[in-house]
């Protein structure tokens, strides 16, 4: 959409465009996403992935809900089937990247200092430290945080949000922006359910559905190997779908960022 000729002025936003202003000032209609710069970089990252047929998965959750443990189990199960790589995001330390490398998979650690999320520029910088020609699935483990990471597109194709059973089962109601962004929700550490009398998986699912989310809810324990088959099958299906899209010259963003926008009155926004 063009920002200079006025073709993005629609009946829905016209009142913004032609608001009378004081003498000596002029009004300019912009209607641009605030994070357009990040989104442009994310689109660039996505095209890097698509060119090489890579599926990129963004993992988000609270700190300590088992993102790295899920990756370790996934590497052990799938590293002979697919070529995997991981970008780790934390405020400090190389610890998580070291855990991944110990499993024989390349990993690059982004340390954000005090930043509470990864953005598309940080991920792009990290891509220069990985050999992308050797990768089928790239995992990006975001900073443990249920708030900020949801707002930044990194160029990933799918979002995975983890909820461990040691957290509250009402987390989706408390953090709707994060859980709405998920293409699949993983209920982790389910081997501990027997010891916890205050976490009800049905209530967690109810809170998720109240966000109008129809995505799969996978219950698993990475440490005990419970429920992992459904997760591996989800990854296999997503990689097959990504390869089909690449052949057709198409790409995909996480569900939340594309679907529904069609119905928005500001759908023409650049």
């Amino acid at each position: 959409m063009c920002d200079s000729c006025g073709c993005n002025v629609t009946p829905g936003n016209q009142h913004l465009a032609y608001k009378p202003v004081k003498a000596g000032t002029s009004a300019v209609t912009v209607l641009k996403k605030l994070l357009a710069h990040n989104d442009d970089q994310a689109a660039h990252n996505r095209s890097h992935f698509d060119t090489r047929g890579i599926l990129t998965i963004n993992l988000m959750s609270s700190p300590g809900s088992g993102k790295t443990a899920l990756l370790e189990a996934t590497i052990d199960a799938l590293k002979d089937e697919f070529r995997l790589a991981v970008i780790e995001g934390d405020l400090e330390t190389e610890n998580d990247a070291a855990r991944i490398r110990a499993r024989g998979v390349p990993a690059y650690q982004i340390t954000t200092g005090s930043a509470c999320h990864l953005d598309a520029h940080m991920v792009h910088e990290a891509l220069h430290h990985l050999d992308l020609s050797e990768v089928d699935i790239l995992f990006v483990e975001n900073v443990g945080n249920l708030v900020c990471p949801a707002s930044f597109d990194l160029g990933q194709h799918r979002n995975v949000t983890l909820l461990s059973v040691t957290e509250g089962d009402d987390k989706p109601a408390k953090y709707p922006v994060m859980f709405r962004a998920a293409d699949v929700v993983v209920l982790s550490k389910i081997d501990l359910l027997a010891m916890l009398d205050d976490f009800d998986p049905a209530r967690a699912e109810q809170c998720l559905r109240q966000l109008a989310s129809t995505v799969p809810l996978l219950q698993l324990s990475a440490r005990k190997g419970q429920g992992m088959t459904a997760w591996y099958d989800w990854l296999r299906n997503e990689l097959a779908a990504q390869r089909a899209r690449v052949l057709a010259g198409q790409t995909v963003k996480p569900y939340i960022q594309s679907d529904g926008l069609k119905l928005h009155t500001h759908a023409e926004v650049s």
Binding site: L16, V30, L31, K32, H264
Partner: peptide
């Protein structure tokens, strides 16, 4: 489907 509520938009500016 959400039709409004996730906007994060720069709508317009008044410039001197």
């Amino acid at each position: 489907q959400l039709i409004s509520g996730d906007e994060l938009l720069l709508a317009n500016l008044e410039l001197t």
